[in-house]
Design a protein around this nucleic acid. Structure first.
Lengths: 156, 156
DNA sequence: CCTGAAATTATCTTAAC
DNA sequence: GTTAAGATAATTTCAGG
């Protein structure tokens, strides 16, 4: 399933603005509306485009503080641990990783008091947790890259 | 700028599906179309809703490998370092952090050979870099939470 | 704040080249 | 791959409570 240059451009445009009309999209990539529409539907059906989401501002929603937590757990507890991580609203993202810890959690809180409570009362009490190491996020350098540009850059 | 329950529900629905029609949105939150439309436009104008983006599948785009890189730099080089991080297509996200390192970079590559090249030839050659520590992402546990649900949970 | 309706655009389908 | 036309459904504006 190789990705054509036109598909890549369509993806890049929709990554920036998911509400661009088919007319504008088609004109920008140099296609007429019908084939452009067909390609977008195909990209959705293949699962390359998973959906369309509003990008919301965490600070604007009152979450002034974000942190990264490395978590080590007892290996046999991975299943309930992961379930609760997925269910916890203040865990923004979570990855299983190699290295010193087993997971990296990106968490949010309204302020330092709330972060302290979240770490001591909730994160460190999750199933199987043996150790946490927390780093504060002091600034966001880059929020999300374009997979379309990454794809072009990587020569795929 | 306090957020009403209705605004919060609108945000939650648009986080899941940015292409929901105003008619459906309005019906779901129990409003008629015009006030619902006005609220969405106000949320966009305030910057609470930053935009609408297609969610693209990294693996589908050929990026089978992701990694987290802790980066330490010489402090006086922070500006060119951050500029190049922002410009690099294979850096998916970047945060400035407290702790042992100065930054955490989330990077992508097509395969191990490409990751090796990216780390040795590009990331570690960025301006001012003195040290990198890389952890592979072995699995995604959670991709992005709902800020609407987080807001409700936090009692804001 | 809300309702409802009208004007304008966009989506999606269909047909034909 | 293209154009074009038309039905449906959406967005956006506006008059009025």
């Amino acid at each position: 399933m190789t990705i054509s240059e036109i598909d890549r451009r369509i993806i890049g445009l929709l990554e920036r603005d998911a509400r661009m009309s088919f007319a504008e999209l088609a004109e920008t990539v140099g296609l007429s509306k019908t084939p452009c529409w067909n390609r977008v539907k195909a990209l959705e059906a293949e699962g390359l485009i998973r959906g369309y989401r509003a990008a919301v501002d965490p600070a604007g929603m009152g979450f002034g503080i974000e942190a990264l937590v490395q978590v080590s757990i007892r290996p046999e507890m991975f299943e309930p641990f992961e379930r609760e991580v997925r269910a916890h609203p203040l865990v923004r993202r979570a990855h299983a990783t190699t290295g010193e810890a087993d997971y990296l959690l990106h968490i949010m809180a309204a302020d330092m008091a709330a972060l302290d409570r979240l770490l001591r009362m909730e994160i460190s009490q999750l199933p199987g947790v043996t150790r946490t190491v927390t780093a504060m996020i002091t600034r966001d350098i880059k929020s999300e890259n374009s997979l379309s540009e990454a794809h072009r850059h990587a020569g795929l």
